[in-house]
């Protein structure tokens, strides 16, 4: 993928900045520009998530796409943030550690590198809280 695709969401990926709808009070990460509940009546503003939440479900990836192969085995989970929204992210911990309901907090980490001369991609992962 090209540089702009990562760059334009850098703020969101690095800092866990998403959105919230002032009309209904729903929080969105990944960020949404349109509130699915309020649609045209929604008023979307930026929101800095606290970065704490819990594991809803998880898996241990043993076979990965090329750019993630060096990380295997690694934990991928659906995290429910304290604000109520859910996201998919890696959890940095021993592979026998994660459990449903495990409290986690966000950390800034390298996500992947696109080959030896390619881009380094950074973003948010989680660690046990």
């Amino acid at each position: 993928m090209g540089v702009p695709r990562y760059w334009r969401k850098q703020k969101n990926r690095y800092n866990l900045i998403g959105t919230m709808c002032k009309t209904c009070g729903s929080y969105y990460f990944p960020p949404r520009e349109l509130c699915p509940k309020c649609r045209r009546d929604g008023e979307i503003v930026e929101y800095q998530f606290k970065g704490t939440g819990k594991i809803v479900t998880y898996t241990i990836i043993r076979t990965a796409a090329k750019e993630y192969d060096y990380l295997t085995p690694y934990v991928v989970a659906i995290i429910e943030l304290d604000e109520g929204t859910r996201m998919t992210a890696q959890v940095i911990c021993d592979i026998d550690k994660p459990y449903i309901g495990m409290p986690v907090k966000s950390v800034f980490r390298k996500i992947t590198e696109e080959g030896k001369t390619g881009m380094l991609v950074y973003g948010t992962k989680f660690v046990p809280a």
Binding site: Y58, Y74, G123
Partner: peptide, 22 residues
Amino acid sequence: DREWEGLAGATFPGLYSLIAVD
């Protein structure tokens, strides 16, 4: 979702595993 699932390192079997664990 390429941007918010794939980029996190979730493979397709990985996503179905998330379903299975739940």
